[in-house]
Design a binder for these strands. Structure first.
Lengths: 268, 268
DNA sequence: CTCTGCGTACCGGTTTCCGGAACACAGGCC
DNA sequence: GGCCTGTGTTCCGGAAACCGGTACGCAGAG
């Protein structure tokens, strides 16, 4: 922020913690916001820290399995351990309670199963879920995963990524087909994503499981992109895509509530 | 490991890092796996750490915004900053997601467990892994490590190093023997590496674990040597070294895809 | 073969961390 | 009220980790 000064570029990051540990953590944060691998030299320029210091920090993080060195061993990326932490965190987040309440109220209002979802790698993961009281329903547990290109949440989240990120996900693995409605053509998917971005919601019309319809909206964030969705799902028997759109206001209200819950964590 | 014993229950967690920072991080991990708020006392009992120490740690984490105190200020939960880190991390894991997709497609094609591996220090580390659907399989987690001289990936990667580098790796640690197939003689290993370099692939014929066969190929890089492999592994019951060679084309195609992913993630 | 850019190792001075002991503040019980 | 127990908090000297200037190794470019 605050362009101001001076000689050259931003020079902003300034990963200063007041304690060594916090500096390390800040380094992790910096790397986690990159969607590409970073080099020692690049970090030196970006942070202004002395090279040996950064080298030691990276070494320590790598030794702990939080970072891994990529390819020619001079590029660092996030490690499996860090990803596991992230998934656990989102699955168990302590204000889960509050979110769950919102979700339950939503289900009570609209009468169909609702989910909170997030993107993890190339899949969508169910963070939380409240079932419809109706006897006929689809059974998927919290923690389970579904493909990204044929789920409402997946398309919603995809639409927030940069073209390069999306390309990376799909260039090398085909869009598997699950039903005859599944979008298996990249261009068709891109077209769909454009629609999603414009509308602010995404629909899955039996693209993953026959007979299953979903609608998803984003949980907004004050800053930057969001990695969470609220979505409703139901059998076509009870819910057609048309009728589903009538549920949008309720979904959006719920998403707004969740955003507020997230925001309540700013103190010092 | 070692004694275990003893007085009472599990006492398992043992969040020992060898450095203060890693202890803090382990504490974060522990809290992140909890679905509810934790108290200082509870953590004392769970970790066995002295109370003042934990108190200081929690204070530090709270000060940094990674944890927050709930309500009556004696219960800790995960903070907004940590959640933001988690979301960023998962959003930007597209590289990992793309690689994982390629790997999954490969496993689907050939039907056996496949890995992505890299050289880390003097060991081979599993970066990612997709398991075969077969019920009989070897169980190794992503992030685990195997010796370099008796694994297909290890030999493949070794063959890319300069003689000086190789010498440095082995000068100080003998070639431990794991099975009666393990190459424990430097000269024999050098001979094998020469073969590997010529063929462009490496085979592990029960050199590390009895009954385990592996074949590895390099993920090529535009520039210089590679530090990544794609490898298939299977029990001898299903896969003999001979049959494994028929899988080479598929492996190489996957490796090529990974190379392209890597190429798109280099910058600054 | 030098030259330059980057990654890596070394090491003394300084900062941070460690955790036993002691203190503070409840609430529950006589 | 006085006492006790279970918690959260503060102190502080000894020990350990971190810091980053300097120097070295190893590429690839000129």
């Amino acid at each position: 922020m605050a362009t101001m000064d001076h000689t050259l570029e931003a020079e902003a990051p300034e990963l200063n913690g007041d304690t060594p540990t916090m500096r390390l953590f800040a380094l992790l944060e910096l790397i986690a916001t990159k969607d590409q691998f970073v080099s020692l030299q690049g970090l030196v320029e970006e942070t202004g820290l002395p090279k040996p210091t950064l080298h030691r920090m990276l070494q320590q993080l790598e030794g702990a399995g939080l970072l891994i060195r990529q390819g020619d061993s001079r590029q660092y990326g996030t490690g499996a351990r860090l990803r596991r932490l992230a998934e656990n965190l989102l699955l168990n987040a302590t204000q889960h309670g509050a979110r769950h309440g919102v979700l339950r109220a939503l289900v009570e209002e609209i009468g169909e199963t609702c989910n909170v979802t997030a993107l993890s790698g190339n899949e969508v993961i169910y963070l939380d879920r409240v079932e419809t009281p109706e006897p006929l329903r689809f059974y998927l547990r919290p923690g389970s995963r579904v493909p990204v290109h044929c789920s409402a949440s997946g398309k919603m989240l995809l639409s927030q990524l940069s073209p390069a990120q999306r390309h990376r996900l799909f260039a090398h693995s085909p869009l598997s087909s699950y039903t005859h409605h599944t979008l298996t053509d990249i261009d068709a998917l891109e077209e769909e994503l454009k629609r999603v971005r414009k509308n602010g919601y995404a629909v899955d019309d039996e693209e993953f499981l026959p007979g299953l319809v979903c609608v998803a909206v984003l949980v907004p964030t004050t800053t930057g992109r969001s990695n969470m969705c609220v979505a409703v799902q139901a059998p076509t028997m009870r819910l057609t895509p048309d009728k589903a759109l009538h549920l949008l206001p309720a979904l959006q209200r719920a998403a707004e509530s969740m955003a507020q819950i997230e925001a309540e964590g700013a103190a010092s």
